[in-house]
Design a protein around this nucleic acid. Structure first.
Lengths: 347, 347
DNA sequence: ATGAAAGCGCTAACAT
DNA sequence: ATGTTAGCGCTTTCAT
């Protein structure tokens, strides 16, 4: 158990060598010529005394803290933030870094978010991850530019910062293709009403994927509501009341799909026999627990957190030039998670 | 925007004073006698240069980092961890502290968890929060004792560390009382099968609360299954098939309640008209989105995180002696969150 | 009312 | 093969 009061000097004294030697053997400095016996003496003295390095002092001296700042919007408001944090934490740990986390509100002023970044800067983090709660275009505090930074799950208003985002179009295409592959031809889309990239891109992919399958994508039914359970319910009621009722529904997210389940139930439609449903997000609490289990498309939160961290560390260590990657956001795939809500249409 | 290259020395030079003076005015040292004009000069020089303190250097000198370590089991596996982190982060920020977070697996070896704590210790955190994923009895790495520490959502196997946990009995009592208050007399309990404090304590409170209301608590129906949606479904099917079918169900958690909803639906029972249901956890994604909304008891995760942080900081600052609080865990209340799943029984 | 200087624990150039 | 020493940026004692 490391003893806070033991320093390199104590180890040196105990081993009967100088601090340089201790530093060299403990850090396994490449160019150091030290006899095996001395190495052993040092190591056992350190072990004996319960020596643990003081990372503050190391950092002060080397100008490297081995700490990454993570400013995260609304931690825990959704489980999504948690997945990003986990991906970042594990990637960081694997490379010997630690995470300092600051919560910020998505609706906070630019100035208060600037202060959050400032706090991280004062602690001399080697780099900063800035994670948003959902994919959008964010305005970033300017002091983010003081250290290598990467943006997770959003793109910057000004561009010019490396970002990683989900493949909204690809995910939507995957979802629709799953429905097409099951034989569906009358497919409806329950869309969100917010003006965010996902709304537009998923709609676009919905239409083009249908068109590519030889269907009239432009005419396919779309109903928009707030992207919550009740919105999904309302939209589903409407879309399922049409004369040419769809045999399958692509839902903007799992919450809306949950609403669609209820609407289907009320209309006497059994899933997946009478109606196939595919969601988006893979919010496990919902998707895995609905009955039948909801087939959906997963958002790569963990992967984005890990990707961002890997590349941030590469930049910190001079292995990568982030500015080269800043031109275009990196897009990570959204894989299909197959459960039990898709079947072939009846007729 | 703070400039990493500007130090106290640069400010001193720019203001034409010594570093001592700069340090004194910037830190508002109480005993310093410095003329108002000098103070102004220093402050504007600092402002001008974009000076920001180097917290590493401060920490090295003062032996105080202003950082708290948070080792959290399985971040994001449940939204609960997120609420704890948020409570801790906000409490920390309010007092000028930051959080360094380490993820650990609940199933990780004692040794690997010891290493996680060690990493925090090497960074010289002022104190450590150790948060578990669910309320249980946990074996803690011994090096946790090196700095002030508090345990969140569990009690230590050995005792002897300040801990904060939810009031399982009180929460269960509140839930059952809500059912009693609505007029129910035949109340069933869908319990968990895990051998954890919540299982035992909620059951105990279930029986005694009924007894206190003049009912035969010992004879009240209880069905146990895994605390997941499907377990709740199975348990509900059984309990609702009894001759003396309960008019109300207290569920171990919201997931089991979700299963009970499905069972009720299949049996043609309408909630809350034919069957009242109360859950536990207040997992919003479920509780708020079921139809009708699930009345449930909230676990005080945010509050536990905040409480632990407050008291940890008090200890760090010498305002509290944690060892005095270590004798008994602090118990935080579980309030009822009223939605629409309770009504008076039919007859 | 202000400044000089030591030292927090460490690394790394530079001796020897 | 190993040791001496300056200095990372700051706080704080002690002088003046």
């Amino acid at each position: 158990m490391s003893n806070k009061n033991i320093g390199i000097k104590d180890v040196a004294t105990a081993a009967g060598v100088s601090v340089t030697t201790v530093s060299h053997v403990l850090n396994e400095v490449a160019y150091a010529r030290i006899s095996p016996e001395t190495r052993d003496k040092v190591r056992s003295a350190a072990e004996q005394l319960g020596y643990g390095p003081n990372r503050l002092a190391q950092a002060l001296r080397t100008q490297r803290t081995g700490m990454l700042g993570l400013v995260s919007e609304d931690i825990a408001t959704t489980p999504h933030a948690g997945r990003i944090i986990l991906g970042a934490e594990e990637a960081a740990k694997a490379r010997g870094y630690n995470l300092m986390i600051i919560n910020t509100s998505g609706s906070a002023s630019l100035e208060s978010r600037r202060d959050d970044v400032e706090a991280l800067l004062e602690r001399r983090v080697d780099g900063i991850l800035y994670a948003t709660m959902y994919h959008r275009i964010v305005e970033l505090p300017a002091n983010l530019g003081s250290v290598p930074s990467v943006l997770v799950d959003s793109v910057a208003a000004g561009g010019n910062i490396t970002a990683v985002i989900p493949d909204e179009e690809g995910g939507a295409r995957t979802a629709v293709q799953a429905l097409l592959a099951a034989g569906h031809r009358r497919i409806g889309f329950l869309n969100n009403t917010d003006d965010v990239p996902a709304t537009r891109q998923r709609l676009h992919a919905f239409r083009t994927t249908l068109a590519e399958a030889g269907l009239d994508g432009g005419a396919a039914p779309v109903e928009s509501e707030v992207s919550e359970v009740h919105g999904g319910y309302e939209a589903a009621r409407r879309i399922l009341s049409r004369d040419d009722r769809p045999t399958a529904l692509f839902c903007y997210n799992d919450r809306m799909a949950m609403g669609a389940y209820r609407a289907a139930g009320e209309l006497g439609l059994s899933i997946p026999a009478d109606l196939s449903v595919v969601g988006f997000d893979d919010q496990e609490l919902i998707a895995a627990n609905l009955h039948p289990g909801l087939t959906t498309v997963a958002l790569p939160h963990y992967e984005m957190g890990a990707w961002a961290t890997e590349h941030l560390i590469d930049a910190v260590e001079g292995k990568t030039d982030l500015s080269l990657m800043a031109l275009h956001p990196t897009i990570l795939g959204c894989p299909l998670v197959t459960r039990d809500s898709i079947a072939a249409p009846l007729q």
